[in-house]
Design a protein around this nucleic acid. Sequence first.
DNA 1: GTTGAGCGTT
Length: 167
Amino acid sequence: PMSNRRRHVGSRDNPNPSRCLGVFGLSIYTTEQQLHHIFSKYGPVERVQVVIDAKTGRSRGFSFVYFESTEDAKAAKEQCTGMEIDGRRIRVDYSITQRAHTPTPGIYMGKPTYSPNSSDFGGYRGGGGSGGGGYRRSPSPYYRSRRRYDRSRSRSYSPRYEARGIG
DNA sequence: GTTGAGCGTT
């Protein structure tokens, strides 16, 4: 019979154990520093990456935490799922993707296609009416916000809560 | 300081 052969799949429902954890449901104000502080309680954290929306320069509300050891990642996953950070209940799972996606230009790069005997275009219209044989220059799609270090956010795990009564 | 669900930019 089929047996348990599909153990290596790694779908979103059944991610494989990994040193990389996906952390979801974050407040957009939760920083990599906070997450590092929290997750490194379970073992050495190699890197924390909050996924930033290219358009707004703000957090997309999820992040990836790279542990040095899968064991520690497992412990962190168990302990941190359901934890509340900055008022948001987070979910933690093994990442199904291991790395950031290859940057894409955000522009269709295939040949223009259209219906030859109709004015009804089948798809790509030629990128803004200039040229038409592809794109000339990518208009800096991964705009990063100009915001510099905001020290008021990097001082502690949950400044809003911990700062009460400090000052 | 929207939420909700959400697997990725250098």
